[in-house]
């Protein structure tokens, strides 16, 4: 076989194994559709918060503090007289935005480290995986809380803290996938064809191993949103008075006996968000790697 035909075979094999392999069309995939609808509606609510919110989310109205739900304030007001519904809608902007952005950095770092470790193996793999083990020893919340403390509160610290903790999971997943993929014929063919390691990793192995990382990423967004909400609840996250679901729950907890809806509703918003993202993840997993499903 000439180099050119070897390369061609490698390319075709890569094409046929990459991308969609599902038998049924995407719109027949129940979880995927449910996930898209829920996440879509939430994103829409977040984007339209300035239009949809009846009040300014941070404007205080102390005369009307702790008003019960009524036609003017559907979810009542908090201890500063701020409209809870408006804060909920504006909170979606913060929590969803930070959650979606936070997942990107660890995805990239973890994928590169896992890919390199799995592909080259040897001492590099050993060293990188030992580093992964070190980071793995720190429970997610412990590391995130400590890093946000050390770096100072604020959005940038949250991104760095989450990235520092969650890249390890991507590294483990991608490494495992690459270990399998690099023994496949199409990779062997590409190597025999004399392609560079970088090109094989990025263009041949990459598309085939990314799907697992993307599927994991969906559940990771849920983890990140939980972390942001938890940090907000603990008073370590996005600084007040910015509306954020965790801090709304924390404010509401004080008045749980009289104003139960204040702590309850933002939590339900988190539940709906995570259900939507879980279904989206399940649906994507069906679409991207049907052979792994039972």
């Amino acid at each position: 076989m000439t180099t050119v035909t070897t390369l061609y075979a490698a390319r075709r094999a890569r094409r046929s194994t990459a991308g969609s392999r599902s038998l049924k069309p995407w719109y027949r995939n129940g979880s995927l559709v449910a996930g898209i609808v829920i996440v879509g509606l939430l994103v829409l609510a977040a984007l339209l918060a300035p239009v949809l919110s009846p009040y300014d989310p941070i404007k205080q109205d102390l005369v009307n503090a702790l008003a019960p739900p009524s036609s003017t304030h559907l979810l009542g007001t908090d201890k500063f007289g701020r409209d809870v519904l408006s804060r909920l809608l504006w909170g979606a902007r913060v929590d969803l935005r930070v959650g979606f952005i936070a997942v990107l950095i660890p995805f990239v770092i973890g994928t590169v480290v896992g890919g390199v470790a799995g592909y080259f193996g040897g001492w590099l793999d050993t060293v990188l995986m030992r580093i992964v083990d070190v980071f793995f020893a720190f429970p997610f919340y412990v590391m995130v809380i400590v890093l946000v403390f050390v770096l100072g509160s604020g959005e940038a610290s949250i991104y760095i803290a989450i990235a520092a903790v969650s890249w390890v999971s991507y590294a483990k997943i991608v490494r495992g996938e690459v270990l399998v993929a690099k023994e496949q014929d199409y990779v062997v063919a590409a190597r025999l064809g004399g392609l560079s390691h970088a090109r094989i990793l990025v263009r041949h192995i990459g598309p085939n191993v990314l799907s697992q990382a993307i599927i994991y990423g969906m559940s990771d967004i849920v983890m990140d949103i939980m972390a942001i909400v938890t940090l907000g609840y603990l008073g370590l996250g996005i600084a007040p008075p910015t509306a954020e679901w965790g801090s709304i729950i924390s404010d509401g907890q004080e008045f749980i006996t009289t104003q139960w809806q204040q702590a309850t509703i933002p939590g339900l918003a988190v539940v709906v968000t995570s259900l939507g993202l879980s279904w989206l993840g399940d649906g994507l997993s069906d679409l991207l790697s049907p052979e792994r499903r039972k």
């Binding site: 849920v222 939980m226 939590g267 968000t273 259900l275």
Partner: peptide, 18 residues
């Protein structure tokens, strides 16, 4: 299991208190 994973832990605690 879906719900259990989708609920923030501290919020579950508050709901149990409630």
């Amino acid at each position: 299991t879906l719900l259990g994973q989708g609920m923030p832990q501290f919020w579950v605690g508050i709901m149990l208190i409630l």
